[in-house]
């Protein structure tokens, strides 16, 4: 059983079994309180089912992309839990969670390729491109950060597509609010494992943007 965390958009946590059953999940209603809500959510998820760290087989965390501060809260939580419980730690790109959720609808609509978009703020989206195979979506492009108008004309799922529906060729309205969640991330991981792909031990955050720091230019004159 995996304890799954994602804080690339909302803060979320879930317990997902190797068979793809979600035993419990939590998702915060907002995108700004990750460091407050995540740890209490994990504690409650385990306590409600009488579980401890010893019952877990590993920890999975969404590595983004997502707004930096929130993203770090989830990764810091996952790393510290894995350290304290001495459990294997895995990372998975967060947009896989939305692709997992969108796969059924995409298949029904006959889309064999699609985009997942989330809000990158500053009038941009985080994006990834997926191809729909027999055994589920596979990432074939990205992740990246771009203005919505610059993306290929593919069906677009997720909150980023909802925000910029007017600049996209094929936004999917039913998924206009969809965000990555830990439960869907866990299911995406189970699906990958089922087709023989090992989970990555890499939890390096996908920032995709440099920090805003600028090397100072020539100094301004005090007496000007």
């Amino acid at each position: 059983m995996l304890l799954c965390l994602d804080s690339s958009a909302v803060a979320s946590a879930a317990l997902v079994t190797g068979g793809g059953e979600v035993l419990g999940s939590f998702a915060s209603p907002d995108t700004r309180s990750h460091a407050e809500v995540l740890a209490p959510a994990v504690r409650a998820l385990l306590a409600d089912r009488g579980l401890t760290g010893a019952d877990l087989g590993g920890i999975l965390v969404g590595t983004g992309p997502g707004p930096f501060t929130g993203l770090r809260a989830g990764i810091a939580t996952a790393r510290a839990l894995a350290f304290a419980w001495d459990l294997p730690l895995h990372g998975l790109m967060s947009l896989e969670a939305v692709a997992q959720d969108a796969a059924g609808a995409a298949r029904a609509a006959g889309h064999d390729e699609f985009l997942v978009l989330t809000d990158a703020r500053r009038k941009e989206v985080y994006w990834a491109r997926f191809a729909l195979a027999e055994d589920g979506p596979r990432p074939v492009g990205g992740p990246g950060v771009a203005a919505a108008g610059q993306l290929p004309e593919l069906p677009a799922y997720g909150r980023g597509a909802g925000l910029y529906a007017d600049r996209l060729a094929r936004p999917v309205a039913e998924f206009a609010e969809a965000q990555p969640t830990a439960s869907s991330l866990g299911l995406a991981a189970v699906r990958r494992a089922a087709r023989g792909e090992a989970l990555s031990p890499d939890t390096t955050p996908l920032y995709l943007r440099e920090s805003d720091a600028k090397v100072p230019g020539p100094r301004k004159r005090a007496s000007a």
Partner: peptide, 19 residues
């Protein structure tokens, strides 16, 4: 610094939950 504090706080809370 808020973003810096957040990293330590998230880690500390996780340790408290785990232990």
């Amino acid at each position: 610094l808020s973003g810096a504090l957040m990293v330590g706080v998230a880690a500390a809370k996780a340790l408290a939950v785990a232990t």
